[in-house]
Design a protein around this nucleic acid. Structure first.
Lengths: 227, 227
DNA sequence: ATGGAGTTGATACGTTCGTATCCCAATGGA
DNA sequence: TCCATTGGGATACGAACGTATCAACTCCAT
């Protein structure tokens, strides 16, 4: 590596320091988070989420993230390879957390409840109905937009191995449908529609009651009405 | 105004220049675009659109906008009060242009075509089916995300005086519906759903044929099928 | 021709950003 | 005891950004 044209100019205090610097330059303290982050990494990633949700992804600078996480900027620098990797990891972790949370919440309903409640709960995971989902949706929206010009982020969105539409299709089929209904087509519009309604809700362009009414109508329409 | 703590320090070449500077400081060359932009303003605004669509709204810096528009950065500075105002104006103009284009395109179909074609064309205005709509949707998406943390942009989205949902509701009602169908609820999910499908299309998470199939299915479902 | 108004060129200022570097403290194995 | 590794503090660097300012140019009425 060249004498470096950026950062403080190397004026070593001793040969030991020089050797140490050389070593650290050869293999930097990269910590690639693949599956499970350390406690400190989670702290920082959650700070990214909060800033992205409240002030936008642009405001998530290294210094601001550090302040929000209650650590120094050097710590952010140390625990991630760079800002971009931090953002990618933060998106992956949010994605994973959302899936886990949704699975848990729906699994809790799975026994002793009719299919309509299950389908409804599944779709409502996409709506900003509480602080957690609201924050998550805001962060996801920011990431979606950025992913349009950032292939690394786009791949996180696209490599989703369990499309939500399939789950909704299965739920509709299992519930039993009224007439000649194509469960897959209904699931497509339902998932896309609930996503769109969620964005309107985020903007307060619709009221929560309005969304609920629309959702109820279409659930009634698709599913068999019992009594 | 104070002697200014930013920019070049005032060292006047003559009393005439000093007087001119004083005058220009008192009433800056603000050009507030309300309805119709000048040719130069349009040039710059369109540069903003192109950059926002291709590289994201973050990359739309004053200098980059100037290069894209083929003018100097000073020109951008001169013709708008500041970067933020430029962004707001660019959004308003895009909004207006989209409405005009949609109205024209649909008006061209209004005679000698059945309601289904009309409704379909209306919804397809939201889909990235050609370069123009694709660019527009990318820019709008970027703006939507930014509007979540920028009240000035949010107000442009929210003060929309002619909700698309109403128009779709009217089209459904006018076309005549099959059974007991609530046109307003159908319009809500259709508009929100097509928006969501458009985002998937932008991401290439769905194919164009897939979207077309889903849309066809639901149009068939809602409207009376004519022999 | 003179000069004012509108517009553009050239340049600089202050801030913020991502990151590089030097340094030190704590820890733990040899 | 010694020393390498890990984790973090302090600071600095170069780039880019938004913007302010002076100077100069083009019209055009006087």
């Amino acid at each position: 590596m060249r004498p470096a044209s950026r950062g403080r100019r190397p004026v070593y205090c001793s040969r030991a320091c020089q050797a140490r610097a050389y070593r650290s330059r050869k293999n930097p303290p990269v910590s690639v988070v693949v599956d499970e982050p350390t406690a400190r990494q989670r702290l920082i990633v959650e700070a990214v989420w909060r800033i992205a949700a409240e002030r936008g992804l642009d405001m998530a600078t290294v210094r601001e993230i550090a302040v929000e996480a209650g650590v120094s900027a050097r710590v952010v620098q140390y625990h991630f390879k760079g800002k971009h990797d931090l953002l990618v990891i933060a998106l992956r972790l949010l994605h994973r957390d959302n899936e886990r949370r949704a699975r848990d919440r729906i699994a809790a309903l799975r026994d002793a409840s009719n299919p309509r409640v299950l389908l409804r709960a599944t779709l409502e995971e996409l709506l900003p109905l509480d602080d957690q989902r609201r924050t998550s949706l805001r962060v996801m929206t920011a990431y979606y937009t950025r992913s349009l010009t950032d292939p690394a982020l786009a791949s996180v969105f696209l490599h989703d191995e369990s499309p939500l539409e399939d789950m909704v299709t299965a739920l509709i089929s299992a519930a039993g449908t009224r007439r000649s209904i194509d469960a897959a087509r209904e699931a497509d519009l339902l998932v896309a529609g609930v996503t769109g309604l969620g964005l309107d809700l985020l903007h307060q362009r619709r009221t929560r009651a309005d969304v609920r009414r629309t959702l109820d109508y279409h659930l009634d329409r698709i599913l068999q009405t019992q009594p």
